[in-house]
């Protein structure tokens, strides 16, 4: 296989297989969860379930509304930068392949600049996990591995953007595919569960008039 067809394979076929795999796995999980019994509220509402759900999803963007982010604004900013980095690194796997015309040198630098802080935050996360006894106590190999593999994903993403060699570009796509295969099984799948959990919690709290607070 020459380098051109190899690159085509890792950017198209491999990604298609990996994404299909991930979607199938998530679908199975979603079906499994939705088949579990759910004790919905029966008493008439004191507030609004819909408002509760909106607030529940929105609170992550309203750091002043929740003590754990309000009192640790630095941590919340780090959390936000990290997830922006994740989002850009994921979006880049599509834009790089499907909209090459959009990927001007300026865009590449902007994307890299948005991913780079996530690497820095990732090291802080790793350090905290090792150094804080209450975090070390609950950390599993999956926690460390997920963190380090994301670092690798970010790093190859930046290198592919800045250098654009076959080596870095193919590394980026191979790691992306490996990631897509692994994600449904690891704690990284939290971003899918988030939508279920926030819906259920928000609906109950909203229904009972607990959130949003006046």
């Amino acid at each position: 296989m020459d380098s051109q067809s190899f690159m085509h394979f890792v950017e198209y076929e491999l990604q298609a297989i990996a994404i299909t795999w991930m979607v199938v796995m998530y679908t199975i999980k979603a079906v499994q969860l939705s088949r579990l019994p759910m004790p919905w509220e029966k008493e008439k509402p004191k507030g609004s379930g819909a408002k509760g759900i909106l607030r529940s999803y929105g609170s992550i963007f309203m750091p002043w509304s929740v003590e754990s982010s309000r009192k640790h604004m630095g941590r919340w900013i780090g959390f936000s930068l990290y997830h922006v980095g994740c989002l850009v690194a994921i979006v880049n796997t599509f834009t790089y392949t499907f909209t090459p015309g959009m990927m001007t040198p300026t865009v590449k630098i902007v994307f890299s600049a948005l991913i780079a802080p996530a690497i820095f935050i990732g090291f802080i996360k790793f350090y905290n996990r090792l150094s804080r006894p209450e975090l070390r106590h609950i950390s599993t190999p999956d926690d460390y591995f997920s963190l380090l593999s994301l670092q690798l994903f970010f790093f190859t993403g930046i290198m592919a953007l800045l250098l654009d060699t076959v080596f870095w570009r193919s590394s980026y796509y191979i790691i992306t595919a490996a990631f897509l295969f692994y994600v449904p099984f690891s704690k990284i799948s939290h971003y899918i569960y988030f939508f279920f959990a926030r819906f259920l919690t928000g609906k109950r709290y909203g229904w009972r008039g607990i959130i949003p607070q006046k």
């Binding site: 579990l36 019994p37 759910m38 004790p39 209450e134 975090l135 690891s186 569960y193 959990a197």
Partner: peptide
Amino acid sequence: RYNRLVGTSATNLCTHCGWCIES
């Protein structure tokens, strides 16, 4: 006792981020 609420919270929703600790 394994319902949707427990099932959602019992697998990979928790990232062990530790934000709950001081609450």
